[in-house]
Design a protein around this nucleic acid. Structure first.
Length: 803
RNA sequence: GCCCGGGUGGCGUAAUGGCAGGCGCGGGGGACUUAAAAUCCCCUGGGGGCAACCCCAUGCGGGUUCGAGUCCCGCCCCGGGCACCA
């Protein structure tokens, strides 16, 4: 026996060596202009926080990298770029809190992120890195805005924002806690109405929804988007008033129109003034003021119903009766028409409101069980609805809608929950919205040749309570001649939403080396749409929806040859620590650097991919990572043994297991089932060890199969095994079906579905019963009873049904 | 309330309608060692039996089937998303 001690596996040395090698040889940089089998794999670029790379980032990136490396081993040229989402309120707030300028802080954070990412062994092409804060990048973000504005897809309107008088700035909804500022818990957030820029995404709601059916995306993500778009079918119904004003309501239940006993307008509804009777005006105005005084967040929390009567009435077009008009904040201006017909007998909210204010409740739907009101069901029949009595609800919808239409009192209508996208941010740290306001010409887009409108590197970027950006204080920047008439004009001081930055970053990556165009058309044709996008479902709606919309709009304007940006999207799961959510306050945050220093990046990667199904997430436990490392130690030892042995055929059982493993690992990685792929590789290695089968022909394919998961050790082992060049230039092994097949099988014998014995037979035997009954234990269970039936599943089991 | 996931050993997870428990962690025992670590070997769902074997067991209750962790119906619990959306 060979008593030679194998050299120790030192991940730090191995990983440093190969990371240097990849960088020096530029192995991660595909030929963007000539690649014949291009494959573009994308991961969600991070926001470079001051805390550094989070384990959630590493989990997401590793999973995407495993897939990218796998495709590379399958012979494709894989482009795997990375960048930084460095603009935005988070960076700005953090900079403010440590009293520094984000412009100098962000590059420091990016440097740290880059170092950490390189340490993880990701196959990133750093020659195409980008940062959204780079003028060469946001020049084109602004260019997109200008294109959309010129196409009529951007418009201005007044909209509510949360204002913190203490921070002197606008807050995002998630920064408002119970009506108070998250940073100043004593300070009530106020509502302010400002002119802001919107994109008309609701015009594309139907297309954004319909396209989902044909996209190869995680179903969970598609479900979130469908939910968010929120399509509802129903009708718009017109209620006339004696003054001649028409009130339009949207309802999904036109079948219940005979039960509409009052109307409710949202406090912001433009017709409130017109319908309010003189004697009720004071009360109505007071109510409207109170509603306006609330911040956006508290307004949305369901609470006791409140409202006021306007003193006037409208006519129900179905019953022709007069119904009172109320104003209440449970009706939202942002949805439908901002007004509803209240059917208290068949809607919980209306029922609660009617009960509280003593309004009439009229039942128009009966269900089988004769339930108490309110009855909320589609499975009922109409009653007290004149000639529609007795019709099932569903059938009544088209009938009643058609009748109302004939009467000129309504029409079928589809309504979406989706809102237009507000992109204005009254902040400093973002790309200035490229618009100039001229007294004579109105809002004028900055000419494309003048882009970028650079964000000036001002020192006094702290916001004040004027409600305008600190940029307005810099006259040399603020005042400019109007691009169309030359008169003195002023710049827009708001910056755009970070989601606009991230709505097109994947278009930029392949073309970062062009400074005269946002994307090169030849490159774009070769590499886009993105072949595989992997990321978290926290971005299922905003980012993924906005980037779809921007792509669609740019396509319609002739700037892109495709309308959907991502061919495939897969959502990864969430990772928790020892059964609990990770958070700074719990002190259970996994810091990748510490684990990488102790166990190596490869062991960390393997463990992350092993701890649960990638698309479902899993539970990170400190004890578990030792197992990943032990596996790599055993791989290392097997490679060393193979390198010092004569080349010979692997033992029969090893060869069989090898081909089974190749089939399984190939399939599993393709499906992102990394945990079971690793389990299969471990099983195979166990088989190799049991049979003393660590020979080159057995170990070579194992190294290729683990290379996507543990790239550094795979490279080192590949070299140890005497191969020239990178393992990533090797060919992925092919499973040989014939070699994978077992020639004897274990046949399970059941009596009445219970296992009573097992026997080894050669594959494909035809008549199992006689053989089966020979077994003593089976004999015992069959004795004295008659076999009624025999179920035979070839090469698997026999089930004898007795009695 | 609505929409997605998920509930299997002490733990993380695995199982085209066909042997529930593969892989890994943890635990127990043994070998090696002056000793420990590392490594290697064996055992490891519960109960009964000297044993052959038998019974119970995949959140709960029903059902379909020769056969159900897997399919169907009705619940319960956990995680996530949306939420006064008419």
């Amino acid at each position: 026996m060979d008593e030679r001690k194998p050299p120790l596996y030192d991940p730090q040395a191995v990983e440093a060596r190969w990371q240097a090698h990849w960088a020096a040889k530029r192995t991660n940089e595909p030929d963007l202009d000539g690649a014949e089998r291009p494959f573009y794999t994308l991961m969600m670029y991070p926001y470079p926080s001051a805390e550094g790379l989070h384990v959630g980032n590493v989990y997401a990136f590793t999973g995407a990298d495993v897939y990218g490396r796998f495709r590379r081993l399958r012979g494709e040229s894989v482009f795997e770029p990375m960048g930084f989402d460095a603009f935005g309120i988070h960076s700005e707030n953090y900079a403010l809190s440590v009293n520094r300028n984000p412009a100098e802080l962000i590059p420091e954070n990016i440097n740290r992120f880059r170092t950490q990412l390189k340490r993880m062994g990701l196959m990133l092409d750093w020659s195409h890195e980008l940062s959204t804060t780079d003028p060469d990048y946001y020049r084109w973000t602004q260019w997109i805005f200008v294109k959309l504005l010129k196409a009529g897809l951007a418009y201005r309107k007044k909209a509510a924002v949360n204002w913190c008088p203490e921070c002197k700035t606008v807050l995002a909804n998630e920064q408002v806690i119970d009506g108070y500022c998250e940073r100043h818990l004593q300070t009530r957030v106020e509502l302010r109405f400002l002119e802001q820029w919107f994109f008309r995404i609701t015009d594309s709601a139907e297309r954004l929804l319909a396209n989902l059916d044909s996209l190869d995306w995680s179903e969970s993500t598609k479900a979130l988007q469908r939910n968010w778009i929120g399509r509802s079918e129903g009708a718009e119904i017109v209620f006339g008033t004696p003054m001649g004003t028409e009130i339009r309501v949207f309802t999904t239940r036109p079948d219940t129109v005979f039960g509409a006993t009052y109307l409710v307008l949202s406090p912001e509804h433009p017709l409130v003034d017109a319908v309010t009777a003189a004697e009720e005006r004071a009360k109505v105005n007071a109510y409207r003021r109170a509603a306006a005084g609330q911040d956006i967040v508290s307004r949305r929390i369901a609470k006791d119903k409140t409202g006021v009567f306007t003193g006037s009435y409208a006519r129900n077009p179905a019953t022709r009766e007069t119904v009172p008009i109320w104003v209440a904040d449970y009706v939202l201006m942002e949805y439908g028409t901002g007004a509803i017909m209240a059917v208290p007998a068949h809607d919980e909210r209306d029922f609660e409101f009617a009960t509280k204010f003593g309004l009439p409740v009229r039942q128009v739907v009966r269900d089988e069980a004769n339930s108490p009101l309110p009855i909320i069901t589609w499975d009922g029949v109409l009653t007290a609805s004149e000639r529609f009595d007795g019709q099932p609800c569903r059938e009544a919808v088209p009938a009643i809608t058609a009748w109302l239409e004939e009467e000129g009192a309504g029409a079928a209508r589809v309504q979406y929950r989706l809102h237009d996208w507000c992109i204005s941010r009254q902040r400093f740290w973002g790309p200035p919205i490229p618009v100039i306001y001229c007294r004579a010409c109105g809002p004028v887009p900055v000419p494309e040749d003048d882009l970028p409108v650079e964000l000036p590197l001002i020192e006094d970027f702290r916001p004040d309570d004027t409600g305008v950006s600190p940029l307005a204080r810099h006259e040399e920047w603020y005042f400019v001649p109007c691009p169309s008439c030359g008169a003195k004009a002023r710049r827009e001081t708001d910056v755009s939403d970070t989601f606009l930055d991230s709505a097109w970053y994947f278009l930029r990556y392949p073309s970062t080396d062009f400074d005269d165009r946002p994307w090169d058309s030849a490159r774009t044709r070769r590499w886009l749409p993105v072949d595989m996008y992997i990321g978290g479902n926290e971005h299922a709606v905003l980012h993924l929806l906005y980037s779809r919309w921007v792509t669609m709009a740019l396509h319609d304007l002739g700037h892109l040859p495709f309308a959907e940006p991502y061919r495939r999207f897969r959502a990864h799961g969430l990772i928790v620590k020892a059964g609990a959510k990770m958070s700074k306050s719990r002190g259970n945050v996994v810091i990748p650097d510490e684990y990488v220093a102790k166990w190596g990046a490869d062991a960390f990667r393997i463990y992350l991919m092993f701890l649960g199904p990638y698309q479902e997430g899993g539970d990170f436990r400190d004890e578990g990572i030792a197992g990943a490392r032990r596996f790599l130690d055993k791989v290392w030892a097997a490679v060393d043994e193979a390198a010092h042995r004569e080349a010979e055929e692997p033992p029969k059982p090893v060869l069989k297991k090898l081909h089974q493993t190749i089939a399984k690992v190939t399939e599993d990685i393709e499906e992102l089932h990394y945990n079971t792929a690793i389990a299969a590789a471990m099983e195979y290695l166990n088989t190799v060890r049991e049979h003393g089968g660590a020979v080159q022909a057995a170990v070579d394919p194992l190294i290729i199969m683990i290379a996507p998961l543990a790239p550094h050790i795979a490279e080192e082992c590949w070299a140890t095994l005497g191969h020239e060049g990178s393992v990533f230039d090797a060919r992925w092994p092919e499973a040989d079906r014939a070699l994978a097949i077992e020639d004897t099988v274990e046949l399970v014998v059941q009596v009445n579905g219970r296992v009573r014995g097992r026997l080894h037979v050669s594959r494909g035997i035809a008549e199992p019963e006689a053989v089966t009954l020979a077994r003593e234990n089976v004999q015992r269970h069959v004795e004295g009873r008659t076999v009624r039936r025999t179920i035979y599943v070839p090469d698997r089991l026999v089930n004898l049904v007795v009695e």
